[in-house]
Design a binder for these strands. Sequence first.
DNA 1: TTGTAGGCGTTATCAG
DNA 2: CTGATAACGCCTACAA
Lengths: 333, 333
Amino acid sequence: MATIYEVSKLAGVSLATVSRVINKNSRVSDKTRQKVENAMTELGYRPNSIAQSLASNRSNSVGILVSELHGPFFGQMMAGIEAELRAAGKHVIITTGHSEEDKEKEGIEFLISRNCDAIILHVEAVSDDYLTNLCEGKTPVYLMSRLVEGLDDNCISLNNELGGFLATQAVIEQGHSDIAYIAGPQFKADSKDRLAGHLRALAEHNIPFNESLYFEGDFKETGGSDGLKHFIANKKPFSALVCANDEMASGSITYAREQGLSLPKELSIIGFDNIIFAKHTYPKLTTIDNPVNLMGHMAAKLVLKNVYERKNISITHSFEPTLITRDSIHSIS
Amino acid sequence: MATIYEVSKLAGVSLATVSRVINKNSRVSDKTRQKVENAMTELGYRPNSIAQSLASNRSNSVGILVSELHGPFFGQMMAGIEAELRAAGKHVIITTGHSEEDKEKEGIEFLISRNCDAIILHVEAVSDDYLTNLCEGKTPVYLMSRLVEGLDDNCISLNNELGGFLATQAVIEQGHSDIAYIAGPQFKADSKDRLAGHLRALAEHNIPFNESLYFEGDFKETGGSDGLKHFIANKKPFSALVCANDEMASGSITYAREQGLSLPKELSIIGFDNIIFAKHTYPKLTTIDNPVNLMGHMAAKLVLKNVYERKNISITHSFEPTLITRDSIHSIS
DNA sequence: TTGTAGGCGTTATCAG
DNA sequence: CTGATAACGCCTACAA
């Protein structure tokens, strides 16, 4: 591979000048610029990004930590981030935390040791204190789908409480009052907030919360089936089921059908996230839209603005969920 | 951040010695090793990976190009690759090609210019010739889910022809002989091979191929619904529908239901890939398992073995699909 | 086993 | 506007 040195020799200029035309910032006369550019194409020169990084103390890479690489939720998120960053010539280094504290920390260490210019995290197991402390470090840290007090400017989050409220309200408005709820793991902030929204909707409609219609799931299909099984075993009647995410809703739909329930007539179900498959369940799942893809774009814009000093980018830190009405809620007016 | 120089000073040894203990290869006496390690922890030293890369001409990063970051298929694939590589201390740089020739080429250029030690590609639009030529280059190239003649050693592929055969055979064995087929985009090698398998199954059972029961879809839900709509409009009767992937199968299930068909009684459907959601459609989708996650692991092992010179790794280049029987095929014996 | 010194390919700070 | 030249932090013969 040709180096900057060979280019400078062929063009008959100094290293510094070549560097200048590469980086387009400082002024170079048109004539010399031409000479240099000709030399570059002639040699098929391509800057060595590693050397650039070392000298400039910029790796032009941003680290991303997600819980899982698979799964519709993270896919959308990564797609948003990558598209935005890639267009800016930055690249993404992706790793996983599997929602476990140790692995999340290890992943973060890994990204930092990789000299990322910034890291975007979707962490669930790690504490707020840890994150606050992490933000003191040299590497800028941005948080997805999580709002940590005092770090507001580094967070891109969804109003999960509102989403939780909307979901339960949607079901109440169709006449339901015996409402079961399958929550996500309560160590996750999202899950807690969604539950809080559920409780508020209940309260605002004077429906008492019933412990036996509550189940903590795992955000996966199994959580949905286990939860529904639990409720059915409980014998306490209910006509609607609110799930804290679509995967669990899907799991409970499958299980409900295995139990011979006719959906949505005998059981109304609502999910959360609006993952791509939600419109292909049967009945089509009514759910709460979670604009993760947009949020991914926004997180990327945030680092573009703060870390790479792009101007004229306006940032939205908080996103609002919306109700997506499909066929899985039965009206019992 | 502390540098190797400061460590060497604190430990009272030379730069070279510190470097040696970092890289664990060449021999260092236990005593000096201790001194150095103490100094490192005392300073909280962490090697600068950029500088290491520049000096050693190794970036310890491998580039991955997938069509999309979202989607169950690529998720599983990336998860496999990342898990394996991460465990080896390597990191992955991920970018997308969107199944378009220009974007795929651009993505590849991007990864190469990032000094990846190797790249793992899942490309669909780019030609075999281009790939053959690419492999002449300095950066080692590995191909996922694609078999290019002459590049066999760099490919990890699925026997798609067999898969296509298995799918159609499964349906034939249940007594079907009027079989519609929704193919994937025929510029993709996978799609072609799956179709070839379908044709072979038909031929082996003396079922003539009927042009009006063939439709080329897009591998997405819309392909499934569009295809089924097309067949229904055609009026040519059929009792089974073979889809070249699960997304299309899912789309056609949804559309079938919208048309009031009772599944699987009035229409048997089989998919391909066994994506995670396949078991949550209704009826549960019978499909062909595509071990992408395993294949991802294997691709990573291949680069570990060839590029990072790990020994004792045995490689399987070709994977076999298997039939996953669920509930979407009705027997009309 | 350990140390010395040159180099990896750029950027950046000075002069000129 | 252009050219020397010193970093950047580490690796690796080559010597000792």
